[in-house]
Simulated scan of single mutants.
Amino acid sequence: MSQLTRRGALRLFGSLGAAGMAAPVLSACTSSGNDAAAPSKGTVKIGVLTPQSGTNKSQGDDMRQGFDLYLNLNGRRLGGYDVQVLNADEGESAASGKAALEKLHKDGAVAVTGVANAAVMTEVRDLVESAHIPLIGSNASPQLLNTLYIWRTSYVDTEPGAALGEHVASKLNNGTAYMIAPEAIGRDGIQGFQNTLTSAEGKIEGPPTYVPQGTTNFGTWLNPLKNNTNIKAVFAFFSGASAEAFVKNYAAAGLKGKIPLYGPGFLTEGPLLAQQGATAEGVWTSLNYSPDLDNATNRRFSAEYQKRHQVNPTTYAMASYDAGAVLDKALSLLDGPLSGETLNAAIGRVGQISSPRGNWQFNQNRSPQQRWYLRQVRIDGAVLANNVVSELVTLG
């Protein structure tokens, strides 16, 4: 199916009324342990820890909506248990995120999902381990966690760059790649890209450029690139307001169409693309998901998400939907009493997850072994969209 036809079909499915869609979707998505006619195994409290205000609010909205969609398509049950969702605001700092998780633990959450901020994930690590609370992280992805109770349905921050390195190396034509990212939080992304690019005999333009977190004016770093004929690609590891600004600054500097711009999917993901508008056209990104992937699970997920929220789902929504699937399978595997310890052990046995991104499973580091896709921002009908061009590599 062509990209245009594929998206058109999703919009058609998304516009159908509940009577037309409910029966096939529910029968396909409901797990064997969630028969609405079967007696409930009891109630399980699941914490959803996401930003509800501030710079990461849009990601938090997507994460909550993705998890909620899984519940709605499964009769508000996971593994035969009725679910009581405990929502908590992680805020914008490590301290606020830790305080929110402490409250979820106090309120009886047997497991938690969410977390948008990598600093929060690092801050709560010791609490999660000592309290034996399984945490299914569906966004924040620092490389080094080394825990027993933290699992991730998203990816590790080195992987978006690692997925692109070999592809970009093949496009350099004896030129170089310039790398730019925010201080501290961008180092994993740069490392992943640089390692795979140089392994594929690609060359780097000097040391990586690290800019202060929150930077929105990039002229100081972009203007010198105009006259450097050796640079054949730019890799930019930005998200949020910095990503919006970087793409706009890149076009304003006259680099759009002159030097191809590459980055992780969150450089142009979700509302950012609408905010960037035409300045983003042509940007190349790598990501583990796109709403135009043509598989049965994604057709159901994407159509239902569009019907409920009138927008395409993002990777944040997808990873949170998958967190629901992980908990569903794990809870269905329990034979004895439910506790953080028994649930965590069951998560280790869930095996393959049928996902909108394509099937995946946890690796030894408790993150997904999954396919990565090359996308480009292109006109799709009347709007710009991140269109899948090809598969890149399997990582994890």
Rank of each mutant, 00 (worst) to 15 (best):
residue 133 I to Y: 00
residue 105 H to Y: 15
residue 33 G to Y: 07
residue 365 N to Q: 15
residue 226 K to M: 05
residue 388 V to Q: 14
residue 375 R to E: 13
residue 6 R to D: 04
residue 237 F to T: 04
residue 64 R to W: 09
residue 107 D to T: 05
residue 131 A to S: 13
residue 262 Y to D: 06
residue 151 W to K: 02
residue 95 A to F: 03
residue 249 N to G: 07
residue 197 L to G: 15
residue 391 E to H: 05
residue 149 Y to R: 12
residue 114 G to M: 08
residue 95 A to I: 10
residue 132 H to A: 14
residue 265 G to D: 05
residue 253 A to E: 03
residue 283 V to Y: 08
residue 102 E to I: 09
residue 105 H to S: 11
residue 342 T to M: 02
residue 345 A to K: 15
residue 248 K to Q: 08
residue 60 G to H: 05
residue 104 L to G: 04
residue 83 V to R: 10
residue 308 R to C: 01
residue 190 I to D: 11
residue 318 M to V: 12
residue 58 S to D: 12
residue 308 R to T: 15
residue 148 L to I: 12
residue 224 P to L: 10
residue 1 M to L: 10
residue 383 V to F: 05
residue 226 K to L: 13
residue 67 F to H: 08
residue 122 T to G: 08
residue 54 G to W: 09
residue 385 A to E: 09
residue 204 I to E: 12
residue 208 P to R: 08
residue 169 A to M: 10
residue 218 F to G: 06
residue 292 D to R: 04
residue 349 R to S: 12
residue 29 C to H: 06
residue 64 R to F: 15
residue 285 T to F: 13
residue 373 Y to G: 13
residue 345 A to G: 03
residue 316 Y to E: 08
residue 24 P to W: 13
residue 270 G to E: 08
residue 290 S to V: 06
residue 301 F to W: 03
residue 111 A to W: 00
residue 18 A to V: 15
residue 98 K to S: 06
residue 191 Q to P: 00
residue 369 Q to G: 04
residue 324 G to L: 10
residue 24 P to I: 12
residue 25 V to W: 15
residue 105 H to K: 14
residue 272 L to I: 08
residue 180 I to P: 07
residue 351 G to P: 01
residue 75 G to Q: 12
residue 283 V to S: 07
residue 167 H to S: 14
residue 50 T to Q: 15
residue 84 Q to G: 03
residue 388 V to Y: 04
residue 104 L to S: 07
residue 311 V to K: 11
residue 137 G to Q: 09
residue 316 Y to V: 00
residue 105 H to F: 07
residue 168 V to H: 03
residue 60 G to S: 09
residue 239 S to D: 09
residue 101 L to H: 02
residue 256 K to I: 02
residue 52 Q to R: 12
residue 40 S to W: 05
residue 251 A to S: 13
residue 149 Y to V: 04
residue 196 T to I: 03
residue 278 A to Y: 02
residue 335 D to I: 01
residue 238 F to S: 08
residue 164 L to N: 14
residue 194 Q to A: 14
residue 306 Q to S: 04
residue 368 P to R: 01
residue 353 I to M: 00
residue 167 H to Q: 10
residue 284 W to H: 06
residue 193 F to W: 07
residue 38 A to Q: 11
residue 386 N to S: 13
residue 131 A to V: 13
residue 127 L to S: 11
residue 296 A to E: 10
residue 114 G to I: 01
residue 385 A to D: 14
residue 82 D to R: 11
residue 90 E to V: 04
residue 349 R to F: 00
residue 316 Y to W: 13
residue 3 Q to N: 07
residue 263 G to W: 11
residue 113 T to P: 05
residue 94 A to I: 13
residue 106 K to M: 12
residue 191 Q to G: 05
residue 318 M to T: 02
residue 85 V to Q: 08
residue 171 K to R: 14
residue 318 M to K: 14
residue 191 Q to F: 10
residue 40 S to Y: 07
residue 324 G to Q: 09
residue 168 V to M: 05
residue 207 P to G: 06
residue 276 Q to Y: 07
residue 132 H to Y: 02
residue 276 Q to A: 10
residue 35 D to Q: 15
residue 163 A to F: 02
residue 98 K to G: 11
residue 127 L to Y: 15
residue 134 P to C: 03
residue 311 V to E: 10
residue 111 A to C: 04
residue 298 N to D: 14
